[in-house]
């Protein structure tokens, strides 16, 4: 057992497998770059972590390999998964009285449309039910939710109105959503001093 030995790895003809192992690292790195879905990219980042730990260990840097496996793969991926999960979300506030049930076909279809759009952009759609219109407005003003969707008081050809306070979400939905059930509007909220 010889602990702190410094080894200089010399690549000779005998060590030709080294080239094959090192070649794996840029391969997986390109796989990470060309991945569109953030969760898939995270899993492939894990593969990159395993491969780079292998490369570091084979080249003789045992400490770097250990750090890569513990921090770079385990900690970073777990934290990133939590961060991506809580940030890539569209929180839509609805009234509890018209929660999507079997008889409320309009809202059900609307929610399905929204779901297909958000999943195309890798967003999650989260429905937050509120008791009455006042609580819904309050939640939008306090920035607890990104958008509200409620039944109009005097129905015209659109029976629901959707109000969005995030500009780029509004841009996306304006181009993608072609449902006649709802009208879309953008609400520009002033930036609040206090944090919620």
């Amino acid at each position: 057992m010889c602990w702190p030995t410094v080894r200089v790895v010399e690549v000779t003809v005998n060590d030709s497998y080294l080239y094959a192992i090192i070649l794996l690292m840029p391969l997986t790195a390109f796989m990470v770059i060309f991945q569109a879905n953030p969760y898939h990219a995270l899993v492939i980042r894990g593969i990159l972590g395993a491969v780079s730990a292998l490369v570091y260990a084979v080249l003789g840097a045992a400490d770097v390999a250990l750090t890569e496996a513990l921090v770079g793969t385990m900690l970073a991926i777990t934290l990133y998964a939590i961060a991506v999960r809580s940030s890539l979300v569209l929180r839509l506030g609805i009234l509890r009285e018209d929660e999507p049930e079997a008889e409320n076909l309009d809202l059900k279809r609307l929610i399905a449309d929204l779901h297909s759009i958000t999943s195309k952009k890798h967003l999650r759609l989260e429905l937050v039910p509120y008791e009455d219109r006042h609580a819904l407005q309050q939640a939008l003003w306090k920035k607890e939710i990104h958008a509200t969707c409620s039944r109009l008081c005097q129905p015209e050809e659109a029976r629901y109105e959707t109000t969005i306070r995030v500009e780029y979400l509004y841009e996306i939905l304006k181009t993608e959503l072609s449902s006649p059930i709802t009208s879309l509007s953008y609400l520009n909220l002033p930036t609040l001093e206090e944090k919620h």
Partner: peptide, 28 residues
């Protein structure tokens, strides 16, 4: 011996990372 220790640690820890990630993805 040194690389061997690293290999064993990665073998046991990498699996733990996988389980964590699987649980998070399931909640998702």
């Amino acid at each position: 011996w040194m690389i061997g220790v690293v290999g064993v640690i990665i073998l046991s820890v990498g699996n733990a990372a996988l389980m964590l990630l699987a649980q998070i993805l399931k909640r998702l």
